[in-house]
Design a protein around this nucleic acid. Structure first.
Length: 108
DNA sequence: CCGATGACTTCTC
DNA sequence: GGAGAAGCCATCG
């Protein structure tokens, strides 16, 4: 597994239940080795990976569920978020700043 | 190696 | 404030 994917997977896996994170924050956390686009690209491959990645906790900067169409069903992402206590209206997370979680510790 | 693609972000108009 | 363009970086053919 490449370092980039592994870092993304581990970081997303560390997102607490009921919290979400943005592509840009992940990209910034990982450094220059990845941009927000490449983070999304890694997420795309996360489904094919045996490593479970809660991709539904990763959204774009506006708190919009841009990646929901990549799930099994377009509504599954919203269902998962709501099941964790996150309110989603029209593919947008409510109180986004409150449920937003930003990584602080460095990944090994 | 090079061009095309993408679950993004930011700037301009 | 909505639409278009550019910048961004890893992956694929």
């Amino acid at each position: 597994m490449n370092d980039f994917y592994e870092k993304v997977y581990r970081l997303v896996a560390k997102i607490p239940r009921g919290k979400v994170c943005t592509y840009g924050d992940i990209a910034t956390f990982l450094g220059t080795k990845g941009s927000a686009r490449t983070v999304g690209y890694a997420m795309n491959h996360a489904q094919s990976s045996t490593f479970y990645v809660p991709a539904h906790r990763v959204v774009n900067r506006n708190g919009l569920l841009t990646g929901k169409h990549h799930f099994e069903s377009p509504t599954m992402m919203q269902e998962l978020l709501e099941s964790e206590g996150i309110k989603v209206i029209q593919d947008q997370i409510q109180d986004f700043e409150k449920v937003r979680w930003i990584p602080k510790l460095k990944i090994k």
